[in-house]
Design a protein around this nucleic acid. Sequence first.
DNA 1: TAAATGCGTCAGCCATGTTGACGTTTCTAG
DNA 2: CTAGAAACGTCAACATGGCTGACGCATTTA
Lengths: 154, 154
Amino acid sequence: MADAFMSDFATRAIAERLFFGYRAFTGDADRVLASRGLGRAHHRALYFIERAGSIPVHELLATLGITKQALTRVLRELMEARLVERRRDPTDGRRGILTLTNAGRALELSLLHAQKARIESALQDAGPSGSAAVHAFLEALMEPDDRERIGTSL
Amino acid sequence: MADAFMSDFATRAIAERLFFGYRAFTGDADRVLASRGLGRAHHRALYFIERAGSIPVHELLATLGITKQALTRVLRELMEARLVERRRDPTDGRRGILTLTNAGRALELSLLHAQKARIESALQDAGPSGSAAVHAFLEALMEPDDRERIGTSL
DNA sequence: TAAATGCGTCAGCCATGTTGACGTTTCTAG
DNA sequence: CTAGAAACGTCAACATGGCTGACGCATTTA
């Protein structure tokens, strides 16, 4: 721990940038979601289903870190809107497997693209070698368990 | 715009790191808050009052981006807990000025310190020159209006 | 002195999370 | 084969932290 005595001032500099930065980042998608009558919880489910291609319910639960009751409500709404489909795992009929419909994939992509320009320009501001630093910083911020849930940064 | 055609894959890499990273970052403070019967909304108010030393109500409202009704409830609870005090602006009696009590400052500091170790180690992982890149990245992510609300990163 | 400003407050609503309890289907171990 | 465990889905009640709309009051300003 070379830098174990960071100042409170420096800590605040990061804390407030994270707060404002994350708020702007989620705001981009929130505006698109609101026009469809959906919320941030729906976005998170769409995101991780799309990312995995298809995903067992228990894994989505672990990734989102919410209770099954909270997720069930979100999934019901997404299935009613024909954005998500649930089928059974052929190897274990108790398990549910979630996939996106074509409409679900289209919406998820439009949500990603709503955030893309902001992320692109922020990475550019970080400089050519800054991208690696940003990835390393954010990964180090995460809980260790969650590190297994992300893709590589290549 | 040197990198105007970032891949969706690269965009997702940042999006999910932001999600998991921010969740872990807020989680550190949430655990302390829960033990005091407070929530994240109280933390944000304490943070920005402390950061400013004292702050007019209207400015805290603009910073937090919530309605006065939402803030009033939070402030009432903080004042009942003797963590925040409200007095009048001597130059304009309609305006309220908020400050922390000694107990409020102590709590705010303990919340900051709950997040400090994670931020320190994440910045170390970003490398020696990475800190500047991380600051630049997060500032670029923010809404322009909010950039006036943060301190310098020196 | 009348109007505008800056609050504080009441009431009702929404989105998203929580616990706890129950029922059903399906797999697994004895 | 059967009992129990596992993986859900669902219902009910509740907490937090947002929102809008409508009032009222003190204070400042035109």
